[in-house]
Nucleic acid binder design. Structure first.
Lengths: 243, 243
DNA sequence: CGGTCCGTTGAGAGTGATCAACGTTAGTGG
DNA sequence: CCACTAACGTTGATCACTCTCAACGGACCG
């Protein structure tokens, strides 16, 4: 299975039929230019997406006009699942870069749930993983200073990009503007700037034009309010999948 | 289906076999006294729970010692699902009152996924609903003042308790201490007190010994940073479930 | 070569944290 | 039933982190 589709097998060895399904998605994918709104809060729900390439934000708009970014999605993520429980979309999906998406209609999804148990379980567990990620982000914002949030965010992004081989000796691309980082961490873009500068001055990170380099993992991890969770591998899935 | 088990049918009409499964849970339930830790972060994962009666918090502990309450669970909620994606439990479940829990082992859960498609889909969608709730809470904490967070929290709790008929003319039980409300909303217990007092002074709410009364829904809703989402009913499920 | 978006920096204001003390309720054992 | 104790709620004073407002520099794009 070619990246980023290999992530579908993270929890489950897939059957040839299931692999075929995923290849079917690959065949019919759509491109979106940078800054496109893929689906807006309140839009009708036409299924979910598999993010083949590019970065996508998921955000909520409050009545005050304040935007809260809830997740930065990277290649291999599945998008739009929370809205399945709602009448209309509950989050805005927005392209941070040029993006390649595979669209999975409600109809295809229902067939998948019926006929592809391994893929279903893998998707189910990956959405639980997203819940864990949300819980962590909540704890960052609810109980940490701006520097601590920033450290946690940078380490998390680093680790997730490293899984796709997008990191070279601590350096990884940063496609968010400082304003967007602020919307993600619940601080002002101005304060994001000061916080980043502080981390640079103290030698923990360096910033390139559209990249970040982590200079001291040790000190950044010491600053971070929590440690990354250990995800269950296939053995746990096997227990859940029966047999 | 007797409350709170009726919530399992929120998304799916259940087959007689599926109803039997749920009744089986009911037969083998456990009691926990107030303040018991049901499962601690890092504990081995022995399945999930159905909350039959009582209130339970789900929380994360940060290295600083700060606790972030991530969710207040009410009767009918399913607990412990996020940890299925992890090697060890990712959240601490703690009884806020005397609690009745039905335990569902990994083995039972795998059988359920295989043989009870309606129940499986209902559970899947309810976990997506939890994601929506987490996203909303994140936006409250990330982008609102303490008074706004408090308004959103009180309205949300009111609405969820109203679904179980636990609300009488705006009055509902409040089983959290002010310290716990603080851990939920990301503010100090001292500031929780001041915020509640302010809301009382301005006539929006009144506080009883272990209860809250909402006096002006209109003004509290105007203060709240967002509006409650509209959850999809059975029609949407039918589309997803196939047939 | 303009314009817009993004990043950067300064000064001042405000919300909420911290520290400290006291009142009140509830639970416990005599 | 009362005394005692601990947990919870309440209030004041001070401090710090972060927001707001404002201005300017630089980079990318048309």
């Amino acid at each position: 299975m070619q990246p980023p589709f290999h992530r579908l097998e993270e929890y489950a060895r897939l059957s040839p039929f299931e692999l075929g399904l995923a290849e079917g998605w690959d065949g019919s994918c759509q491109f979106f230019p940078k800054r496109t709104v893929i689906r807006r809060e309140g839009d009708p729900i036409d299924g979910v997406f598999f993010l083949k390439d590019g970065w996508v934000t998921s955000s909520l708009l409050m009545r005050s006009g304040q935007k809260q970014i809830v997740k930065v999605h990277l290649p291999g993520d599945m998008l739009g699942f929370p809205s399945l429980a709602l009448e209309t979309a509950g989050e805005t999906l927005e392209a941070l870069s040029e993006v390649t998406l595979c669209h999975i209609s409600n109809h295809d999804l229902s067939q998948l749930f019926e006929a592809a148990p391994g893929l279903s379980l893998g998707i189910f567990l990956s959405t639980q993983k997203e819940r864990i990620a949300l819980m962590r982000q909540l704890s960052w914002i609810g109980g940490s200073s701006s520097a601590e949030r920033m450290a946690a965010f940078l380490l998390d992004l680093h680790d997730r990009l490293a899984l796709s081989g997008k990191v070279a000796s601590g350096t990884f691309p940063m496609l968010l503007t400082q304003e967007q980082v602020g919307e993600l961490l619940g601080i002002t873009s101005i304060h994001v700037n000061r916080t980043i500068k502080d981390l640079c001055r103290s030698g923990m990170i360096e910033q390139g034009s559209r990249s970040i380099t982590i200079k001291s993992f040790e000190r950044l991890r010491a600053l971070s309010p929590d440690e990354p969770p250990t995800y269950a591998g296939e053995p746990r899935w096997r227990r859940l999948g029966g047999k």
